[in-house]
């Protein structure tokens, strides 16, 4: 990257490191940090929306909808989230392809599952076989986002369900006494007030989400764990200008420091937010 990197004399000098850390592959590593941040930025609101939907469904008066909501909030209690990740990535992919197969190739008579294969017609493949590489990567990333949102949405649903129940009953009763309908009382009284009760749980969830981002690696996305393993493993002088031994230890140490800084920063910001939102509330944290 730097002009002095072309000069072979820099080897063994201090700026060797500057050259080493700016190779094309290291740029991939730095971009994958952006990937993690993008994932968080998209997943967090999406999971919150899923969670809100789940919590509302769990409170519904329509029985099947309530069962669905309760079931959704219950799934995360008993089963490891990693299992969900691995399941949903394949299951969603197959579900999308199956639906497209049904719509796009109605004349196809063979079964979709043939022994140990999952066969759909070429037009239903996702992404299409002719699609460029970046579409494949984007599709994989999109599947990962939806998977994260489903799993952490269930956590969020738990939090929000609890928060809705924590709002004092008297508030709703007052709203009803003023002649508000159920819908009005929900949107104007319950929802604005529940956030303060939900915030501790949601900040916990945010931490969980941050700490779950390395699992992207298991979903087949080229994330920071992938690059740290790739770049850290030992290099022979024959294949690269920057030969080194097994440096994976140092790369992962770097990742650890990154996550520590990130969670610490989040903690600081969330605490400020908590203090801000507690203002004027009749809770212990209010000042």
């Amino acid at each position: 990257m730097f002009s002095f990197c072309t000069d072979p004399d820099t080897l063994g000098q201090a700026n060797w490191l500057a050259c080493y850390l700016t190779t094309g592959k290291h740029m991939g590593l730095y971009w994958s940090f952006v990937t993690v941040l993008v994932l968080l930025a998209i997943t967090a609101p999406l999971a919150l929306a899923f969670g809100f939907g789940g919590a509302v469904a769990a409170r519904s008066q329509i029985a099947p909808l309530r069962w669905f909501g309760k079931g959704y909030t219950a799934i995360v209690r008993g089963v490891p989230d990693i299992a969900f990740f691995m399941f949903f990535v394949i299951a969603l992919d197959q579900a999308f392809e199956w639906v497209r197969h049904r719509v796009l190739c109605p004349s196809w008579t063979e079964p979709v599952r043939q022994g140990n294969d999952f066969v759909v017609c070429a037009a239903a493949k996702l992404p299409l076989g002719t699609a460029p590489q970046w579409v494949h990567e984007l599709y994989g990333f999109g599947l990962a986002i939806v998977t994260f949102a489903i799993v952490y949405g269930a956590f969020a649903a738990n939090v929000l369900f609890g928060a809705m129940r924590a709002v004092p009953r008297g508030q709703i009763e007052t709203a009803e006494a003023y002649g508000m309908s159920r819908r009005q009382a929900f949107w104007r009284i319950l929802v604005p007030q529940m956030w303060i009760y939900a915030l501790p749980g949601l900040s916990n969830l945010w931490m969980l989400l941050i700490k779950a981002t390395p699992l992207l690696f298991l979903l087949g996305v080229e994330d920071i764990v992938y690059w740290a393993r790739e770049l850290g493993s030992s290099r022979q002088p024959r294949f690269t200008d920057y030969p080194h031994g097994d440096w994976r230890l140092w790369y992962f140490l770097g990742l650890l420091v990154f996550y520590l800084a990130f969670t610490k920063l989040s903690e600081f910001v969330l605490e400020r937010l908590m203090r801000r939102l507690s203002r004027g509330q009749a809770t212990m944290g209010a000042t």
Partner: peptide, 20 residues
């Protein structure tokens, strides 16, 4: 702080390379 602030997944990797 260290064990709660970082992902278990990264801790496993790091520990493995230290053990190596």
């Amino acid at each position: 702080l260290v064990f709660r602030g970082s992902p278990l997944f990264i801790q496993f990797f790091l520990a493995y390379f230290i053990f190596l």
